[in-house]
Amino acid sequence: MNDRVLPVRPAVEGWPAPACRGADMNTFFPAPGDLSTVRRALMICDRCPVRIPCRRYALDNRERYGIWGGLTEETRETLARIGPPSAVSSGSVG
């Protein structure tokens, strides 16, 4: 049994607790090719009330490993390479 879990800290004041709070860390840092664990992590992220700030943190800080805000390492790498959509970067609303 793995006792490595994500910290169970109080949520940031004014923010709801993340859905991953207290979850097994290996869920969000799966072994290469472990697609069932990746799917499990993405399902947790999908219902998380702080998914977007988590995603933004990972992109802004160029997190290289793990699943953050519903984005895999590969997806973040692709987004970093191609940049934000033009509507986002120009500030226009579509």
Rank of each mutant, 00 (worst) to 15 (best):
V50E: 01
R9W: 08
T72S: 07
D46W: 03
T75M: 10
T37S: 11
R56Y: 08
E73K: 04
R56N: 10
M25G: 10
V93T: 12
M43K: 15
R81Q: 12
A23N: 03
L6Q: 02
T75Y: 04
M1C: 10
N26A: 12
V88H: 14
R81D: 08
D34E: 13
D3S: 13
L79E: 08
G14V: 06
D34F: 07
A23I: 03
V12A: 12
L79T: 07
G83M: 10
P7Y: 05
M1E: 13
A17F: 00
N2P: 14
P49M: 05
R39D: 07
L59D: 01
R47F: 02
V12C: 09
E13A: 10
T37E: 15
Y65L: 13
P85E: 09
G70L: 04
D60Y: 04
V88W: 14
T27Q: 05
G91S: 09
R9S: 11
T37N: 08
S92D: 14
P16G: 13
I52A: 15
C20I: 04
A11F: 05
R81Y: 14
E13Y: 15
I82A: 00
A11D: 02
L71W: 02
R9C: 02
R55K: 09
I67F: 15
E73V: 11
E63P: 04
E63W: 08
M1P: 10
V8D: 14
G69Y: 02
A80T: 13
D24A: 06
T72M: 09
P16F: 14
E74D: 14
E63D: 12
G66Q: 06
C20S: 05
G94L: 13
R21T: 07
A17T: 09
L42K: 04
P18Q: 10
L59Y: 01
A80C: 10
R4E: 06
S90W: 11
N2R: 07
W68N: 00
D3V: 11
P10K: 09
V8S: 12
P18W: 05
R81S: 12
Y57S: 09
P30D: 05
Y65H: 10
R51G: 01
D3N: 10
R62G: 05
I52E: 07
L59R: 01
S36C: 05
